[in-house]
Simulated assay, not measured.
Amino acid sequence: MRTSGQITGVRLAQTPSAQELRSRFERHSAFTVGVEEELLVCDPETLDLAPLAGELLRRLPQDRAFKGEMPAAQLELASPVAATVGEACAALLAARHEAADAAGGDAVLAAAGAHPFASGIGQLESGERYDAIQEEFAGVARRQLCFGLHVHVAVPGADRALAVFNALREHLPLLAALGANAPFYEGRDTGLASVRPKMCDLLPRQGVPPAVPSWEALADELAWGARSGVMADAAQWWWEARLHPRLGTVEVRVPDAQPTIGDAAALAAVVHCLVAWLAARADAGDLGEPAAGWRIGENRWSACRHGVTGRFADVRDGSARPTADVVRELLVDLAPFARDLGCSGELARAHHLVDHPPHERLRLAARDGGPRAAAAWLVRRFLTAD
Rank of each mutant, 00 (worst) to 15 (best):
T15P: 00
S17Y: 14
A18P: 08
R24H: 12
S29Y: 07
V35Q: 03
G54I: 00
F66W: 03
K67N: 08
G68K: 05
P71A: 11
L75A: 06
A90K: 09
L93I: 14
A94E: 14
A99D: 09
A100S: 14
A102L: 12
A110H: 03
G122M: 10
E125A: 13
D131S: 15
A138V: 05
G139K: 15
V140M: 14
V140A: 14
R142Y: 10
R143D: 02
L149H: 04
A163T: 05
L168T: 14
L172Q: 00
A176D: 10
G179T: 07
G179W: 01
A180E: 05
V195E: 01
M199E: 13
P209Y: 00
V212F: 04
E216P: 14
W224K: 15
G229P: 01
D233T: 05
D233P: 02
Q236E: 12
W237R: 15
R242N: 08
P245W: 14
P245H: 07
V252E: 10
I261G: 03
G262H: 00
D263E: 12
D263N: 11
A266P: 00
W277M: 04
L278K: 00
G285M: 09
G285S: 11
G293I: 13
W294K: 05
R295D: 01
I296P: 10
N299S: 12
W301R: 04
S302K: 04
G307I: 07
T309R: 06
G310D: 03
F312C: 06
V315K: 13
G318H: 08
V326R: 01
E329S: 15
L330I: 11
L331M: 02
L331Y: 02
L334W: 02
P336F: 06
A338D: 07
G342P: 03
H356Y: 09
R361W: 01
A365C: 07
R367G: 13
R367M: 11
R381M: 13
